[in-house]
């Protein structure tokens, strides 16, 4: 999976035109990132397994509340160990690029996906703001902001974005309340 012509830690080609997005996994091509992810998952599942040990047993049935999750988490831990062994050699090779290799791969991934992270962050902010501002204002700000971020910066797009944002905020609020009797959260004004 790593490009042998590449001299960077992630093994991706260096030429910018080759750095175009592909349909498959991109971050998944770094064995070091995979190794780090499996390590984090192993630790996480280990912690959850420990939590599952405290789940109550039942007097009425052979399997208590914790048995099923413990089996699942045990198999998940085993599979993560398999993954760690599978990717260890390649990850060590990537680490050979220097101690900052993991940071380098993570930083490149951050840069590569900055637009995605921005939209995801905006979505998270929209969801957080629904309670204090109400659905209408939060949805309008999110829809308008993301359209302006992703779309062309022209006056025409600004007007279209505002109209679309109004439809998906005010329009949805009215439709859900009037037609479906579902009342979306209201803020101080709407």
């Amino acid at each position: 999976m790593s490009d042998p012509r590449s001299d960077n830690a992630s093994g991706r080609p260096d030429r910018p035109e080759d750095d175009a997005p592909q349909s498959g996994a991109i971050a998944g091509d770094s064995a070091l990132l995979q190794f780090a992810l499996n390590l984090v998952m192993l630790a996480g599942f280990g912690y959850l397994f420990w939590e599952a040990m405290a789940l109550p047993e039942s007097r009425w049935e052979p399997l208590g509340a914790g048995t099923f999750p413990r089996v699942l988490l045990g198999v998940l831990m085993f599979l993560n160990v398999v993954m760690l062994i599978q990717s260890a050699r390649q990850a060590r090779a990537e680490l050979g690029y220097g101690p900052r290799a993991l940071f380098d791969v993570a930083w490149r991934t951050m840069l590569e996906f900055r637009m995605v992270f921005t939209v995801l962050g905006a979505f998270g902010l929209f969801l957080i703001l629904i309670r204090p501002l109400g659905f209408v204002i939060a949805a309008f700000l999110f829809a308008f902001g993301v359209q302006m971020l992703l779309g062309p910066r022209t006056w025409r797009n600004l007007v279209i974005s505002a109209i679309i944002a109004a439809v998906v905020s005010v329009g949805l609020q009215v439709f859900f309340a009037q037609a479906l009797y579902v009342f979306l959260p209201r803020g101080p004004f709407f």
């Binding site: 929209f126 969801l127 629904i130 999110f142 829809a143 992703l150 905020s169 949805l172 579902v182």
Partner: peptide
Amino acid sequence: IPKHIIVPAVLVFCAVGVFA
């Protein structure tokens, strides 16, 4: 429909659908 319109609009729909 351009993607820059589809993406935020469908994300809002998803949030509303899950809330409902």
